[in-house]
């Protein structure tokens, strides 16, 4: 009988105490962390998406996100909170801590091309001020510039003139001719399409001696002058992370994820247009930076392009647009 009791006790340890200790250890880990631990699971959108998709934290609360990937490699980015995890492999757990200082609704997203629906893999971290727990609206108080200027993002914007060779800012600079003073102003220049700038310079007798190619070099120079240091490099990183899968590494609109876009079929049956070709001079040189910013911010265009307004800040937008311009303009080396 004593032998049976001993055997039974061991069995009790194995079948009851052992499993309980496993779950107890996990609970202890969470409790002993000394911070609020939030478990976040990342799966491709058709296999579960972010779980949960909506997180609620408080201002000044120390939070640890414990992010698990279940199926393929995912990334995590919440630009508004300055959070990023570049890679979360399936079965691995990434942890990131933060303290939100401002109430608001901060979008987080997957930053790895995880599936065809990758772009829809978004969630929201709502930061609540405990002294004023009313939800903070998502949309900013001031409308974006394209709306203020009443720009129709979906209207055709073909350039009246296009260059025959790739415009070079360096060649423009070598001409040693000053640009009109207002074109040195970034906010002025970004409201103009490059083709409009070309037409304006063409009409200006100051530049009458220049050939069309030289004028286009001046246009490229104008864009280089308003491009901040490091902007092209940052833009390239963002482009590689968020745009290249559809628009292609070289901006030709031939990225593998851009084929058979689910949104394209749903919104525009029979449409032939896929992701925009950033090397298409006719379209790109007829678009101002403000117009391009509006498209990036809003998304749509009947191509299934996601909106980036909730993820990108003003600088991010300008960086990406500067890099997109570099597909047509030689703005110098991008390292």
């Amino acid at each position: 009988m004593r032998r049976e009791l001993f055997a039974l006790s061991v069995l009790f340890l194995l079948l009851v105490v052992f499993p309980l200790s496993l779950f107890g250890y996990q609970a202890w880990r969470t409790h002993a962390a000394g911070v609020r631990v939030i478990e976040l699971t990342a799966s491709a959108p058709d296999k579960g998406d972010w779980q949960p998709k909506d997180l609620r934290v408080q201002v000044s609360e120390k939070v640890r996100l414990r992010i698990k990937a279940t199926d393929v490699i995912h990334g995590f980015v919440a630009p508004g909170l300055g959070l990023a995890v570049d890679e979360i492999a399936p079965g691995h757990v990434a942890e990131i801590e933060f303290v939100a200082t401002q109430p608001g609704r901060y979008v987080f997203a997957c930053s790895r091309w995880c599936s065809v629906d990758h772009w829809r893999m978004r969630g929201v971290i709502e930061v609540i001020d405990p002294t004023n727990p009313a939800p903070v609206p998502m949309s900013p108080s001031t409308p974006p510039l394209y709306q203020q200027l009443n720009i129709d993002l979906d209207a055709p914007h073909l350039a009246a003139a296009i260059p025959t060779t790739r415009p070079s800012a360096a060649r423009g600079d070598a001409l040693d001719i000053a640009l009109p003073s207002d074109l040195h102003n970034a906010s002025s220049l970004r409201r103009l399409a490059p083709a409009d700038v070309f037409q304006r310079l063409r009409a200006d007798p100051t530049y009458g001696a220049l050939s069309d190619a030289e004028l286009w070099d001046m246009v490229a120079l104008a864009w280089l002058r308003v491009t901040l240091d490091g902007s092209l490099q940052r833009g390239r990183q963002l482009y590689g992370r968020d745009c290249a899968a559809c628009h292609g590494q070289m901006g030709k609109g031939d990225g593998p994820a851009g084929r058979n876009l689910p949104g394209l079929a749903a919104m525009q049956a029979g449409a032939k247009s896929g992701p925009a070709d950033f090397t298409d001079a006719g379209r790109m040189l007829g678009a101002s930076d403000v117009l391009l910013q509006g498209k990036i911010l809003r998304g749509g265009m009947g191509s299934g392009m996601p909106e980036w307004g909730s993820l990108y800040g003003e600088t991010d937008m300008q960086d990406v647009i500067a890099y997109i311009r570099s597909f047509l303009f030689d703005l110098g080396p991008v390292n």
Partner: peptide, 18 residues
């Protein structure tokens, strides 16, 4: 065996990490 069952039911769906 117990651990295999529990990990299968409650662990990561990524087989190579389960």
């Amino acid at each position: 065996f117990v651990l295999a069952i529990l990990a299968g039911l409650f662990g990561t769906p990524a087989g190579n990490r389960n």
